[in-house]
Simulated assay, not measured.
Amino acid sequence: MPDDQHGDGAPPSPPEPLLRMVDNLARFHREHEEFYAQAPLRQAAGLQAHSRVLKALADRWSTVGAGEPAEGLAFTGAEDLNAPGLVAEAGVLFMEDGEEPTELKRLRRDLGLLADDSEQTGAWLSGAMERSWETAGSLTTHPALADLAGERHRIIADDWQAAGLLSLIARLLRRALELLARVDFSPAALRLDLAGGRTAPAYLYSASELLDRAADLLAESAALVHGNERRWRTFRARVRELLPE
Rank of each mutant, 00 (worst) to 15 (best):
E71F: 08
M95A: 01
F35V: 15
R108E: 07
A200Y: 09
S118V: 04
T102E: 09
L47V: 02
W133Y: 04
T140K: 04
A200K: 06
D97S: 01
H226L: 10
L57N: 08
D116K: 04
A149P: 01
D117T: 02
D4V: 11
A207K: 05
P40M: 04
F185C: 10
G7Y: 13
L18F: 03
E89R: 06
L148W: 01
Y36P: 00
Q161N: 08
H6C: 14
E119K: 09
A90K: 13
R191Y: 01
L41Y: 03
H226V: 05
G164T: 01
V239I: 14
S126H: 05
S62F: 04
V53N: 15
D59T: 11
D216A: 10
G65R: 10
N82H: 11
A170E: 13
S118W: 04
D159N: 14
A74F: 02
P101S: 08
L217V: 00
G46P: 00
S13Q: 13
A219H: 09
T102V: 05
A44D: 14
A88E: 13
L194R: 02
A237L: 05
V87A: 15
A237W: 03
H226R: 15
A202T: 12
P15K: 09
G46H: 13
F75H: 05
L172S: 11
V225E: 10
S62T: 10
D158F: 00
G150I: 11
K105C: 09
L73Q: 12
A78Q: 05
L242Q: 01
R230K: 13
S206Y: 05
R198P: 12
G98N: 00
A215E: 03
R20D: 10
A162D: 05
A189G: 00
W160H: 15
R109E: 09
A88H: 03
E134A: 15
G196L: 02
T63I: 08
L107E: 06
A136D: 07
F35C: 03
A200P: 02
D216L: 13
D4W: 08
R175N: 13
R240Q: 15
G7C: 07
Q43L: 12
R60K: 09
L18N: 05
L18Y: 04
L243I: 12
P40Q: 04
A215V: 08
W124G: 09
A49D: 13
E103L: 07
R152G: 00
A181M: 01
L41I: 14
A219E: 14
A39E: 15
A181N: 06
S51T: 02
H6I: 04
L57R: 03
G196K: 00
G150T: 03
E151I: 02
E68K: 14
P201T: 08
P12I: 12
N228M: 13
A78N: 07
F94G: 07
S208K: 05
D59P: 06
L204W: 05
A219W: 06
S167R: 15
V92H: 12
L243C: 15
L113K: 01
L93K: 14
I156S: 00
Y205S: 06
A188K: 03
V64F: 06
P15I: 12
A200T: 07
A26E: 12
R233V: 04
N82I: 07
R171K: 10
R238Q: 06
S126C: 01
